[in-house]
Design a protein around this nucleic acid. Structure first.
Lengths: 234, 234
DNA sequence: TTATATAAGTGTACTTATTACATTTACAAA
DNA sequence: TTTGTAAATGTAATAAGTACACTTATATAA
């Protein structure tokens, strides 16, 4: 199948890797899933979950495969972030790594599987030193998350299917490291008409209890096709 | 230097390429610089200017090198766009290509050098079919340009150092394919205080002539460090 | 020299979006 | 029955964005 004309043979092939910045959110805040590296070099150090791009897959496929390996999840929201290419970034070999960022529901993933890979959740403010340029990747991913949270309903990837408005607000406050006005936040988010109020309350957070809501994905998709944009002011 | 532990040898190295989406602007509108491909496969077809990532350079460096090869320009505004990785995207070999987008002043580049590479400017609305996934790259670059033009002074990369407000407005109209109100545009752009009015007029466009302006880069950098963001509403 | 055609330049009123801010409500536990 | 706690709610002030029409400068043609 492959003809390999001369031009291709003059250049140096190199390994292409994928590293996943996996964010989650729980009552303690925004979190990153990192793994204890089980191979040389840098064995035993904290690292993003990664792997190499295979001969017959795209980067998107590789990223989904790697995320699935760690969490058992499929169909997760992922976005390509950046191609990291410093010639010496990986001391083991010349590797160009393409980072992907993923948003998952912490409660929804396979915890035994993650534990088997040496995975652990870290609060965003307490991320340990990671191998190579992985801390840089996390920093870039956070910036992307902040950009996207304004115009895409990323919050709904990170929360359980049923959630309360105080939870959603806490998520936005964690993403932007900034307190938001309760009334303005609720007005803003509810004015988009994408939340369905359920007939149940979550009593975990207070005596009074907070109403549970669900995100209406169909409505969002329909709006999107009409050129409507999700918009949260922070 | 390189230790190449086992893990690296299990995976398939592949070529990494860089392709440049080079935008320019003149009185006829927003334009793309494409080249007639001088190598197999797809010799003679239109293509983005590209090249392969070398063993001792980063992608940014490779992109700058490739742009310089074609235009003679250095220090040009470039941004990494996306890593394109479909296994069959290049029929000649397995190549992952990282696209870069560049904004240049059409008048400022070396035209003989570009011509020697078979380069030609195409109006954005008249871009011919390009090889492989290059049309897709251009489409993504246009989307990035539209996103960036709202919050970064990209316009000033595309115009000559001295330009008129009608020129700047025409640029924004070309980027967004949309007519803008003259008064509102001028109010908006001038309110940022980043334009210096010069004592000269450009009489090319009308009998009356339009005042020339210059972008104050120092002021912009200073503002940026204070958390100010460039902002054009379109 | 005067008239004409053409693009450049200008200000205000209206609408919409964003921000600031304080009281009441529900309910479990004491 | 009281108390403590988080949840829920509306309005006024400010800022940002939008819509809109006439005057000015000047080269060229009459």
């Amino acid at each position: 199948m492959v003809v390999s004309p001369d031009i291709y043979n003059l250049h140096q092939p190199m390994l292409v890797a994928v590293d996943c910045i996996i964010f989650g959110f729980d009552e303690r805040g925004l979190k990153l899933l990192a793994v204890k590296r089980q191979m040389d070099p840098a064995r035993g150090e904290w690292s993003l979950m990664g792997g190499f791009l295979g001969g017959n897959e795209s980067l998107d496929e590789a990223a989904a495969r790697i995320l699935h390996q760690l969490t058992g999840l499929t169909g997760v929201y992922m976005d390509q972030l950046y191609a990291h290419s410093h010639p010496l970034r990986d001391p083991g070999a010349r590797v160009v790594s393409v980072s992907y960022y993923a948003l998952i529901k912490i409660s929804g993933h396979n915890q035994e599987q993650a534990k088997a890979h040496g995975a652990e959740w870290f609060k965003i403010s307490e991320i340990p030193p990671l191998i190579f340029d992985h801390n840089e990747m996390v920093e870039m991913a956070l910036q992307l998350l902040r950009r996207q949270a304004k115009t895409k309903p990323v919050g709904f990837e990170l929360l359980p299917e049923k959630f309360t408005l105080p939870q959603l607000q806490a998520l936005y406050e964690a993403i932007y490291q900034k307190e938001l006005d309760r009334r303005n936040f609720r007005k803003n988010i509810q004015s988009m008409g994408l939340l369905e109020k359920l007939a149940e309350k979550d009593k975990a957070g207070s005596r009074k209890g907070a109403w549970l809501y669900r995100f209406n994905i169909e409505k969002y998709e329909a709006f999107k096709n009409q050129g409507f944009f999700f918009n949260v002011s922070v």
